[in-house]
Design a protein around this nucleic acid. Structure first.
Length: 888
DNA sequence: GATTAGAAATTTTTT
DNA sequence: ATTTCTAATC
């Protein structure tokens, strides 16, 4: 492949500062690698830093460069072609030993791990925060505003991503300026937002004045001005201007001090426990490079190239500047594809590149010259030729930037570099209005596959959320349509993992394990209980357990999965993960069980790769599909509340470049009443549009398509985005054709169910002639039942009088407690089924408790209870069974 | 027809 | 909890 003119310009422009606007499908990776190869004419690989955002991208670049250059593969793989994160880790390994001391922390940076799991970090953080609260009484009024500890952790991480770092007394460098915000910028923002809107002959009130309406409904402190005072008289189009300053000025010393102490102590905690999160790795790298001239010299590069620049944050920009020996920096990215703000990516890095790079150089050179250059001019290169999609798709995708998030949002299309398609293949772009979205999409896929002559593997379905993606996969399975979800999921929370866990438990003679297996192999709960109590596990199951004895974990897992008819990417991944931990640490069976249990508890996410599956549809989230392309793309679930999804600022402490850090809410000491901080309430209405990133997300999704693009929503649930898209519409009602399933060649492990005549199931309510509908609980009743269940299983806290009564009752019970125990037992001509609210099983006694929340059906309840007692007598033949109606 | 008041509807992505 | 929709009111 030969580069086009634009690409050639990028490849040949080696010296200087370049911002490359590389839209979707413009051959970005190709150009970057060519440029790198070109640089190798005069430089050695170790003189060039090529930073990417993902490990996959780094690998792809390395591969291509190894392929195209005269250097050996190993030389290329040792070169600094890596993610920012791993490169910073390397810098810390080499020069970071004293990094904590630079901040006044008396620790050495020894063998620290980078913690990749957010969930695990949160657990550590909670442990730390509990201790911190005990030791810092003085901030107790601030603790009261935090409902969710993760909000605090998120805030600390976002501060680190901006380069805001605490030191022993005060803040590193000029961090504090960032915390104070920028009043001049805020004034501009406020004025812009407070301009009356033009609307033909008259003017409408400003966006700010409209937004601030919600101020009326908040519980505000006594000194807060009235809403009417802020918005002025009726018909007045603007918020009173003096409130700009009034709202911004606020004493935040205590809040800043709190954040400082929390942040500093947490950093110490991390170091003591030998771990760092990604943000802290960056922060310490930055501190090291800033303070240590030697490290800076040693670690610097002749050339720096940064890929996916829209995904970087400000501290990464700072680090890059410290690493640049010369102003040879080339950043490549596309702001239109910036969809990682939740990961602290800062779109202004690319959008305000020149301004930001120069202001950062000025900051870094305060007091001492650390960056060898200043006042740079940026040269922009635009890659406009798109080799992926048809013009029809590109034009449609641009519409994404005009979509409204709600019916009154006014969207101004931003300036952007339009892409020019280089293909003239056949193309189709349509909106699908579905009666039943999951079914209809599958039907439409079959149609597209046949009509356009595509393979399944050339078709992808993208969704905003993981849950929709997984549901669609399930639906596809029902119809035997080959489809695979690819992306992150809770690996050990799947039914595949749970059956493996059960078998592992049986090897430790655990009753828990057998219960699951019996249930999965076809026994009812009652039957299982009976078998377990009498220690009569079916012979074939026992034999199978015997076979597992002594096997290595991989062989064992394979055998279990195989016997249950599971063989899919999930089982493969489970085996991979388990073999990995098994190998890397000496693990016993018990350790593996605990490992799985922990993973379930922590909702740990793993990436599942289904590419091994031959010809099948890919189902992904939009984030997951970034960078990929498919001939046909379905964007699904463009429904209200899902796409776009709303992300209001729920956090009690807001942080924003412009307004700085603010406390938004105050709770009273018992956390009962909420008073809002009125100043922050006005400020929060001034912070950015919530839908900009959602529009970019839609753009990313649409530009994945090469030829065929379908955007679907469910009838009458269409989102504003869907509604605003100006595309041909099609109503779909079809159901997918069910495909023949391939027969498995080996039989699936099934329990040999005891031979008996199947009897009709009759519920207790039916037997007593009660109308099912009438007996359906009231909302109130359901809540109390739910509470009871929660209290037994997870120690829920009783709040209402009724709940306290229930809690008291449960506390008074002895033995093993069970809620919602289902039972079935044969009686005369039918099988009786029922569900017992609460069961207390003691060694010699069983108490059956029926929770009653209303006065109706008293007599029937007695009858019902009798049946329950009878059933339990069958199940627990050697114990005394007592029934009790518990009224609340 | 703009503004106000109250009712209704919604809550995600992962280096 | 908060935003967005919709109907009533100025």
């Amino acid at each position: 492949m030969n580069p086009n003119n634009e690409q050639q310009k990028l490849i040949n422009s080696l010296e200087g500062l370049y911002l490359v606007d590389a839209g979707a499908g413009t051959g970005k990776t190709f150009s970057i690698t060519e440029r790198y190869v070109n640089l190798l004419n005069d430089h050695r690989p170790e003189e060039i830093l090529l930073a990417t955002f993902t490990r996959n991208a780094a690998k792809e670049m390395s591969d291509r460069i190894a392929d195209r250059s005269s250097y050996t593969a190993s030389e290329v793989y040792n070169a600094p072609i890596s993610t920012f994160h791993s490169h910073c880790q390397r810098i810390l390994d080499s020069y970071g030993l004293e990094a904590p001391k630079l901040l006044g922390i008396d620790e050495e940076l020894g063998n620290v791990n980078t913690l990749e799991s957010n969930i695990r970090e949160l657990q550590y953080f909670e442990e730390f925060y509990g201790e911190f609260k005990n030791q810092n009484e003085k901030y107790h009024d601030l603790y009261a505003i935090i409902r969710d500890d993760s909000e605090l952790l998120y805030l600390l991480k976002s501060l680190s991503s901006r380069g805001i770092i605490p030191e022993e007394d005060g803040w590193f460098l000029n961090s504090e300026e960032y915390l104070d915000g920028d009043y001049q910028e805020f004034k501009k923002l406020f004025r812009e937002l407070n301009r009356p809107r033009e609307n033909g002959n008259y003017k409408k009130q400003s966006v700010l004045r409209q937004r601030i309406y919600s101020y009326r409904y908040k519980n505000l402190p006594e000194d807060a001005p009235e809403h009417s005072e802020i918005v002025g008289d009726r018909g007045c189009k603007q918020v009173r201007r003096d409130f700009c300053r009034k709202a911004f000025e606020e004493d935040r010393e205590k809040l800043k001090q709190f954040l400082h102490d929390l942040y500093y102590e947490y950093l110490k905690f991390c170091l003591r426990n030998n771990y760092l999160n990604f943000g802290f790795v960056m922060a310490l790298t930055f501190v090291t490079l800033y303070e240590n001239e030697n490290a800076r010299k040693q670690a610097s590069f002749q050339h720096i190239m940064i890929d996916e620049f829209q995904d970087t944050n400000e501290i990464q920009l700072k680090i890059s500047l410290l690493l640049a020996e010369k102003p040879n920096i080339c950043v490549v990215g596309d702001w239109k594809q910036s969809i990682y703000s939740f990961q602290y990516a800062d779109i202004d890095n690319i959008r305000k590149f020149e301004k930001r790079i120069n202001s950062n150089i000025r900051e870094l050179n305060r007091g001492k010259k650390r960056v060898n250059f200043s006042d740079l001019k940026v040269e922009t290169i635009e890659l406009k030729k798109n080799y992926r999609s048809t013009q029809k798709i590109l034009d449609s995708a641009e519409q994404a930037f005009t979509l409204r998030g709600n019916s009154y949002e006014e969207v101004k299309k931003p300036n952007l570099t339009s892409l020019e398609s280089q293909t003239d293949k056949k193309s189709e772009v349509k909106k699908l209005v579905c009666e039943d979205e999951k079914e209809n999409i599958l039907a439409k896929i079959q149609e597209v596959k046949n009509d356009k002559g595509l393979n399944y593997s050339e078709i992808a379905v993208l969704s905003r959320t993981r849950s929709f993606a997984l549901n669609l996969q399930e639906e596809a399975d029902k119809h035997n349509i080959p489809a695979a979800y690819e992306g992150g999921l809770e690996l050990f929370n799947t039914s595949e993992s749970k059956i493996l866990l059960a078998w592992l438990r049986t090897m430790k003679d655990s009753r828990k394990g057998w219960a699951v297996i019996l249930e999965r192999t076809g026994y009812s709960l009652t039957e299982s209980k009976e078998l377990l109590d009498n220690e009569k596990i079916p012979k074939n199951l026992q034999a199978f357990r015997q076979e597992l004895e002594g096997l290595e974990i991989e062989a064992l897992a394979r055998k279990v999965f195989d016997s249950h008819g599971f063989e899919n990417p999930i089982t493969e991944k489970i085996i991979e993960v388990l073999t990995d931990v098994y190998k890397s640490s000496y693990m016993t069976l018990g350790d593996i069980i605990r490992f799985i249990e922990e993973n379930i508890e922590e909702n740990e996410i793993y990436e599942v790769d289904s590419s091994t599956k031959r010809d099948c549809i890919k189902i992904q989230t939009v984030h997951g599909a970034k960078g990929l392309e498919y001939p046909a793309v379905f964007i699904a679930d463009v429904n209200q509340g899902r796409f776009p999804s709303r992300n209001g600022n729920y956090s009690p402490i807001i942080y924003d470049d412009i307004v700085g850090v603010r406390k938004r809410k105050v709770f009273d000491e018992e956390k009962r009443f909420v008073f809002d901080n009125w100043k922050a309430e006005i400020l929060s209405n001034c912070i950015g549009s919530k839908y900009d990133e959602e529009r970019r997300l839609m753009y990313v999704a649409m530009t994945r398509a090469e030829q065929y693009l379908y955007i679907s929503a469910e009838k009458d649930r269409e989102s504003k985005f869907f509604h605003d898209l100006d595309l041909e519409e099609k109503h779909v009602k079809d159901s997918p054709e069910k495909l023949e399933s391939e027969e498995r060649d080996r039989p699936v492990l099934k329990a040999s169910l005891p031979e008996k005549k199947r009897k009709r199931l009759v519920s207790t309510t039916e037997k007593l002639g009660m109308d099912e509908k009438q007996t359906e609980n009231t909302e109130y009743g359901r809540k109390l039942h739910k509470f009871m269940e929660d209290y037994v299983t997870s120690n829920a806290r009783p709040e209402t009088v009724e709940e306290k009564k229930i809690a008291e009752k449960i506390d008074s019970l002895d033995g093993r407690l069970e809620t919602e125990s289902e039972f079935r037992f044969p009686k005369d001509r039918y099988v009786h089924k029922g569900r017992i609210d609460l069961l207390a099983v003691e060694e010699d006694k069983v108490t059956v408790i029926d929770l009653k929340t209303s006065e109706n059906f008293d007599r029937e309840a007695e009858e019902q209870l009798k049946t329950y007692v009878e059933a339990m007598e069958k199940i627990y033949p050697n114990r005394k069974v007592v029934g009790e109606i518990f009224r609340v």
